[in-house]
Each structure stands twice: as structure tokens, then as C-alpha cells.
Nucleic acid binder design. Structure first.
Lengths: 337, 337
DNA sequence: CATATAGCTGCACACGTTAACAACGAGCAA
DNA sequence: TTGCTCGTTGTTAACGTGTGCAGCTATATG
């Protein structure tokens, strides 16, 4: 069917070995024959069979980009930035295979022969077994976004806790003391980190915590809406709400305006992530920027270097989160800026 | 290094052929030996080398999901829904390789040996050469989202034109006659289809078209903001704006509120796509639902059936777009509902 | 002149798997 | 007994590529 190096060899009157070497630019081959063969290959529209190459070279040319899940809890923006970042780096040197870890019933198909390297975009501790599996098989590995415990890997994560601290601190400096939190999905590590940032900021400024002000969400729009509806029924309504991501903030704002209240006039709302649309909402959302695309890009670059040098490093690198001040918070401190 | 069928054969005291047959559940093999070998394979943690399998079976187990671009013009929601839809269908029978077509300088690496099938999520005519290439190589192929001309393929597309017609018709029935359009990215086919739907509705109801009301955008937030800013400077401001996607609608609303005007009080705004966040904006956006996830799912299913039956169909299937009425349009017809 | 050397090419095998075909023993019929 | 069939297993080649080693020729070296 398709043309192989043997076909080229026959036509060029040489052995297939010579063709192989010519196409791989081996220094052993005479310059003239090399060019002749390459010309011929181009004419015949030859494309190497990567399955055969993979077999003998023991390289698959595949990189895996694994998400905790592709069903719920992974926002579109997150997926987008991650794929974009990785894709930019690997160019067309590798195939990028995208999967949700929870789609696997067994990890059988994930192994050294099938993947030259793996990027785990981890959002939840449910990945732990997968990460341990990959680490044990000694597949070059980079784990992004979630900080990993108990297993030594290359780990690149945004400093969620600090970001949460910064934005809650900001609310406090704007005079707020009744600050509620709408939390993310239960077993996501990010949920915990952001909650801790919230708590630490509150404690640092000696603002009392209240259980009434602590609402559970799951990172999606509806859950933000529901949680905010709960908060609005409190006798002692909060003056500001820290939503653990922008999607929930959007849902919360919806709930507030439905009650004929205004943001930030009556209640201030802040988010986390800095989604693409957050600057365009009304009011524009004050939030925390989390550099997912940058992390993806640098993670992919690290992985490539591991594969090429056949050496891996194992450390945890934090990436700065950054306060993005827009319009969804009002100053209620009475004149003091 | 890793365990092969030959290793198993040696331990079981049989030939590697027998092992291969046992693991592939061949009827030729005695039930007892079959079970013995399988047990042994499980104990040894055997995983087949898919590169070798691929070579001899001439199947790569790879499916390609190709987007026009991953850089600009592809919204996060679109990417998300497409990947989710396809992923759900293929389970772990195939690897899903995600790429932007514009990342390729040459299509060399895309061929029958490397891909069992290809899904093109086409947004722009710039894909045309890629689609023709894939069709010529006779790789099982499904082209989604954009209607293709000049080349016979399986083509599944949302009925954009009808969707645009419906929403503009809706604006007209709500009493609007000064209706502007903010168009999408220049060479995207969807841009053209939506513009046509707009024009046909206007003509059907004998509403005059004005060049002033025709603005160029490129499907992103900023372009919607800019285009709307232009429209607001017109002496004879439109009373309603049809934005060719929800992102631009969001940008447009931003521009309107910045001028201290309200939506829909002063100007009605509608979008297209029904993004996840559109129902949660303030005001909730009236828009057109485009069933991308459904198309992806059915497209993937079709592709799998092509691969398995080794027979391809070639037709164009339209998927219903659907008007989603929310709160961003006001009735100005003076009492007549 | 013989011999070493550099430059280039081919032979033969390997990678791990599947599959066509041959082969073997048991059971059965003639 | 012979011959045939059935059920099971092994032999061998094939898929398309890369590579260690041997071998060839022409040139340089002593």
C-alpha cells in the first residue's frame, strides 16, 4: 500500500539500510547518494511508519495530558489554558493525548511503551493512585496545579493559599469584617488551600470567623448561586463574599441581583482564577490570577527536558498568584482608603 | 525490561503463539491452557506493546481531534464541549490526540498509519487543505461544525443560519427595527452563515439594512467591546444588537454599561452559542443554543462505526439550533406582545 | 610494492506481535 | 490395519524500521 524505505531502496538501487541512514542524516552516507535518496523519498511522498519506528526505538512520541476529570469540576477555561500552554511548547514533536483520569477503569494502557512522558493536571486527591502508578513505572512525569504529598515528583503549583490570603486581606482593608466564603469542591486540594488562606487572613487581622459564613460549593455556577441564596437568608448578612472561583462568583452575583440587591453596592463579591470573562462581567470581578497557562508551558518544557536528558528532577515549584482589583468590591471603612 | 509474550511462553512451557492466542481469546486454544496463561500474564503484570501490535495489525489506536486553531477564535467553551463529547464516546478504546491545524507546517505526520480516524472541528476555511489532504489519503474522516464545500465528506453542522434567523426574527417581533450586527471572525464560515440569517430575517420582515449597523468583530470579548463602542457613537443608535457569539455579547454589554446605559433598558443585546455562563450574566443573555457537545458525540460515534465497518458514508447532517429566551431583550412595540 | 586507513555500503538480525500453515495425537470409521 | 477428522499446539514468516559488524574500494602511507 504505502511506500516504505524498501521501495525507495529498490528504486534507488541501494539497500534499505542506506535509505534509512540517508533519511536520518547519518554521517556515514555519501552526500550525493543522500540527496538522491531524499529527493526520491520526497517524490514518492514517503512518510515513515511511526509504529515501526516506535517499536525499534522504544519511543512512542506520545505525551499524555491527564486531567482529574473531564466531566465536572474542570472548567472550560482551565482545560483551554492547559492544552494551549502544553501545545505551544511541544509543537509537532510529540502527539498530545488528552484524557480524564476518571475515565480509566484500569491504568493498563498507560505505560512506558505508550507514553514518553506524562503531564498530570491534578485537581483532586483522587488522582493520587494514578500519580503513584506513573511514578512507580518511572515514566517521566510532571504534576501540575495540585501540591502532592507522599510521593516524590516534579510538582508545579500556583500558590493558592497566598492568593486567597491576599484577596481576603484586601476585603478587610476595604473595611469588611463580615466576610463569607463559598468553598469549592469537597476533596479538591485547591479548596483546602483557599480556605486556609481565608482563615489565616481573618485571623491575622483578628476578624472573627463564623460557621454561618462558611458555605459549601462545588466550583460550578449553580452551586455558587445556591450557596449565595443561603447566605442571603441569614439575619446578619455578610457584607462581602469570597467565592473560591470565578464561576461561583458569577452564580453568587446572579443570586444577589435576583433579590434586587446590587454588587458591590449592597454586597461585595470576589472570585478566584481570573477567567477570561471576569473582566467583562458587570461589575467587573475582583479576583486572583492563577497562571495556569504559564504553569502548563513550563511544565511541558520541563517534561521535554526530562525525556531528552533522561534525567528527572523532583521538586516543588510555586508560581505567584496575583490580586486583580476591579469593580466588585466597595470600600465601607468610612473614608479611610 | 518489560515482560513480553515470549517471557510468558517460556514460563508456561508453550510457544509465544499460544500465549498470543490465549490473550486474544482465540477459539483455537484449550480452555485450561487459556486460563493458565491468563493467570500468569496477570501475575507478571503483562501489558501488550501497542507499538508492535500497531505494526502488524496496521492500526494505531489513535484518533485525531483537530481544531482550526488553538490560539485565537476558538473559545474555551467550544474546546471543552468538543473534547468532552468525543471523549465520552471513545472511552478508552482509542487515544485521543488533540491538535490545532495551524500548528502544522506540513501534514506529514498525519497519515493512515498514525491515525485510525480523524475528527475535524472546523471553524474556518483555512482548514480546507487539511480536509482535502485527509480525504485524499482516505483516512476515515468526520468534519464537524463547519459546512464543507467541494469535497465529499461526512459533515455534521449546526444550522447557524436558521439560528441567526430565529433570534433576529425574535428581535423584530419585540418591536425592534434598528438592529445592528457584530460579526465574527472574517474568514470563518459561521460568520457568513450568521450574517445571512440576519439579513434574511431583516428582509423577510422588510426591515431596512444599514451599513452603519454592520460591525466587524473576531469572536473575542475585546472585539465585541470595541465594535459596540463604535455603534454607540452613531447619531442614530440601534435599539438592539445581534452579536455573533456570546463572548462578543458580553464585551458589548460591558461597553454599554460603561456609557451609563442599561441592557435591556436602553439597548437590547443577543448572542449566539449559549455559553455556560450566559444564563448567569446580568442580565441573563438571550441567545441561540448550538449543540456542540451533541455534535461531537454523534460525530465520534459515526467515526467509530466507519472504522469498524470499514465503510464510510458521506452526507451533510444539520443539527437544530434553538432560541434561548432570557432577559437581555426588551419589548418596545408598545403593548403588542 | 604491500599494507593501513578512511569512506561508504550491505548483510543479517532485532524490536514484539499476529497469522498462515504445518504437525501432532486422539478418536473414529471403514 | 489404514485413513480421515478434530482439536490443539508449534514453526516460521511478516509488519517497517534501526544498527552492529563485516566487507568493499580508493587513497594514503611506509
Amino acid at each position: 500500500m504505502s511506500v516504505t524505505i524498501k521501495d525507495i531502496a529498490k528504486l534507488a538501487g541501494v539497500s534499505h539500510t542506506t535509505v534509512s541512514r540517508a533519511l536520518n542524516d547519518s554521517p556515514l552516507i555519501n552526500q550525493e547518494t543522500k540527496e538522491k535518496i531524499r529527493l526520491l523519498a520526497a517524490e514518492l511522498n514517503y512518510t515513515p511508519n511511526y509504529n515501526a519506528k516506535s517499536l525499534v526505538l522504544d519511543r512512542s512520541y506520545n505525551l499524555g495530558l491527564f486531567f482529574s476529570t473531564l466531566h465536572t469540576g474542570t472548567s472550560a477555561g482551565f482545560l483551554y489554558e492547559a492544552i494551549k500552554g502544553v501545545n505551544d511548547v511541544i509543537q509537532d514533536r510529540y502527539n498530545l493525548i488528552v484524557r480524564g483520569i476518571d475515565d480509566y477503569t484500569s491504568f493498563h494502557k498507560v505505560n512506558r511503551k505508550s507514553y514518553d512522558g506524562i503531564i498530570v493536571m491534578s485537581q483532586s486527591a483522587t488522582d493520587q493512585s494514578f500519580i503513584e502508578y506513573a511514578a512507580e513505572l518511572e515514566i517521566p512525569l510532571v504534576v501540575l496545579n495540585r501540591q502532592i504529598e507522599n510521593v516524590q515528583v516534579m510538582n508545579m503549583v500556583p500558590d493558592d493559599k497566598r492568593g486567597a490570603y491576599l484577596i481576603v486581606e484586601y476585603l478587610i482593608t476595604q473595611g469588611h469584617r463580615q466576610i463569607a466564603i463559598i468553598e469549592g469542591k469537597q476533596n479538591f486540594k485547591s479548596t483546602q488551600a483557599r480556605r486556609e488562606g481565608y482563615q489565616e487572613a481573618m485571623e491575622a487581622y483578628q476578624v472573627p470567623l463564623s460557621v454561618d459564613y462558611q458555605q459549601q460549593g462545588n466550583y460550578d455556577l449553580e452551586s455558587g448561586h445556591m450557596a449565595m441564596t443561603q447566605l442571603l437568608q441569614l439575619e446578619n448578612r455578610p457584607t462581602a463574599v469570597f467565592c473560591c472561583n470565578d464561576d461561583m462568583a458569577l452564580g453568587a452575583i446572579k443570586a444577589i441581583t435576583e433579590k434586587q440587591l446590587s454588587v458591590p453596592g449592597d454586597i461585595s463579591v470576589v472570585g478566584f482564577d481570573d477567567h477570561i470573562f471576569s473582566g467583562f462581567m458587570t461589575p467587573a470581578l475582583t479576583t486572583v490570577r492563577r497562571p495556569i497557562e504559564q504553569i502548563s508551558r513550563e511544565g511541558a518544557a520541563k517534561l521535554l527536558s526530562f525525556i531528552e536528558s533522561k534525567q528527572v528532577e523532583k521538586e516543588t515549584i510555586f508560581f505567584h498568584t496575583e490580586l486583580v482589583i476591579r469593580e466588585s468590591v466597595t470600600n465601607i471603612s468610612g473614608g479611610i482608603q
